Simulated assay, not measured.
Amino acid sequence: MTWSISSCFITLVVLFLWRIEDVAEACRCAPVHLQQAFCSADVVIRAKVVGVKAVSGNTNYYVQQIKMFKGPDRVIHTIFSSSSSASCGVTLELTKEYLFTGRLNTDGKMLIGMCDFIQYWEDLNGTQRKSLTQRYQSGCDCTIIRCSSLPCPVSAPDECLWTDWLLADGQSGPQAKYSACLKRSDGSCAWYRGMAPSKK
């Protein structure tokens, strides 16, 4: 009888741990280049977190919008996120300035999650900050393909291979921090570190 109870207890523990692991893995996000995040987002803003309130499974972050790079013709005062990390909820720091990319729901509320690009404003370099005002938008017709292992073939002329991942640099690599994938005059796309696409 003792053996049976022990076995039952062990089984329950294993099932519980499996369930915890399953929940923890419920939110998985593929890394994205800031340009990709900009192009796919409904809203891109620089804002400072000035307050927070938990409301029925969600977290409302009250923000002071500093600049809108993309979005509706109004000021964003509140950003909404799930309170659960398993549902891709995010935790933000009060008084910190962030770059937020997010979505608008049918009510016009700005929603954010772990799969959105959210970064301290101070951690963005000058090239990234300037690219938010024009360069990324002009490259939204291009497609960035993350390359983490060779071979990484380009299947269309409007694609740029994001190869920072081959050297494990990822989002700290030169393409992520200093380059944008832009369309050239012939319709193809290429990485460029200046303010206009290469003519070559």
Results as ranks from 00 to 15, higher is better:
A176R: 02
W191R: 01
W3V: 09
V32D: 00
P72T: 05
D116S: 05
W162M: 05
T163P: 00
E21K: 12
C152T: 08
L167S: 15
S40N: 08
L166T: 04
W162S: 00
G187F: 07
C29I: 02
L111S: 09
T95F: 09
T78S: 12
Y98E: 02
R28D: 08
Q119V: 14
V32N: 00
C115F: 05
A176I: 05
D22V: 10
W121L: 03
Q35L: 03
H33D: 03
A47K: 00
K130T: 10
R193K: 13
I118M: 05
A54N: 14
K199S: 15
R19L: 14
A176S: 15
T133M: 07
E159C: 04
Y136A: 01
Y62D: 13
M110Y: 01
V32R: 01
G102Q: 05
M68N: 10
G187I: 05
L104N: 06
G71S: 04
C147P: 03
L182E: 08
E21Y: 12
R19E: 13
R74Y: 10
G187P: 02
T59A: 12
S82K: 14
D123L: 13
S84E: 13
K199Y: 10
T163G: 01
R103Y: 09
G51Y: 03
L34F: 00
V23E: 13
E21G: 08
V49M: 06
T143W: 01
F9P: 00
R74L: 11
T11E: 05
D116W: 00
C160N: 02
D169T: 06
L94D: 07
G57T: 11
K96V: 14
K67D: 10
I112G: 02
I66Y: 06
I144L: 01
I66E: 15
R103H: 13
G194L: 05
M68K: 15
S56V: 10
K183G: 01
S83P: 07
F9G: 02
C152H: 06
T143I: 12
T101H: 02
V154N: 03
G57I: 08
M110A: 03
C39H: 00
R129E: 08
W18N: 15
T106L: 12
T127S: 13
T143K: 12
P157L: 04
